[in-house]
């Protein structure tokens, strides 16, 4: 269980505003990529987001290109989870493969404002916010295992002894 400050966004937020395409070939280090997170959506986030902050969004978060940096820009800022009414499928895959928990929770976005605190317990599977409790749908064990390992590559490295 942990407490998080939230940043709240609407429907159909695309990967271009999560991580602008103009940087895809020029910015390579995780720190540089993270420094541009949400630049074209919410400059306040880009300036002020702190590690542990969580994104809460509406439908189809992460639509657009398959750009992996649209996930690493947020993991690089220390975002531990994104909670959305629904995710673009490619974005959902990228999240899991990079070890970021995409939490599907259609109702939450209606009940919180940017700056609110929420309580998140992914182990027990609930979010507590605005005096209510929202369930988190469980992930299949195989997907849970990828997240627990920190992503696809670390999971494979644990299994096959690679890395480091």
């Amino acid at each position: 269980m942990s407490q998080h400050c939230v940043w709240v966004y609407g429907d159909h937020v695309n990967t271009d505003v999560i991580f602008p395409g103009k940087y895809t070939y020029t910015l390579k280090s995780p720190e540089e990529i993270a420094s541009k997170a949400l630049e074209d959506l919410d400059p306040a986030f880009t300036r002020e987001a702190r590690p542990g902050d969580v994104i809460v969004a509406g439908r189809n978060w992460g639509c657009g290109s398959s750009r992996e940096q649209a996930v690493t820009a947020l993991t690089g800022r220390g975002v531990p989870a994104i909670i959305a009414a629904s995710f673009n499928g490619l974005y959902f895959r990228n999240c899991i493969n990079q070890g970021l928990h995409p939490i599907v929770c259609p109702a939450l976005v209606e009940h919180v404002r940017t700056g609110d605190e929420i309580e998140l317990d992914t182990a027990r599977g609930y979010i507590r916010a605005a005096g209510r409790v929202f369930p988190i749908p469980p992930l299949p064990p195989s997907v849970r295992a990828i997240l627990d390992a920190g992503g696809l590559m670390p999971m494979l490295q644990v299994r096959f002894g690679g890395g480091r």
């Binding site: 590559m153 494979l156 490295q157 299994r159 096959f160 002894g161 690679g162 890395g163």
Partner: peptide
């Protein structure tokens, strides 16, 4: 090269 990073052979 990515495959070899996993440690698989």
């Amino acid at each position: 090269r990515i495959f070899l990073q996993t440690g698989a052979q």
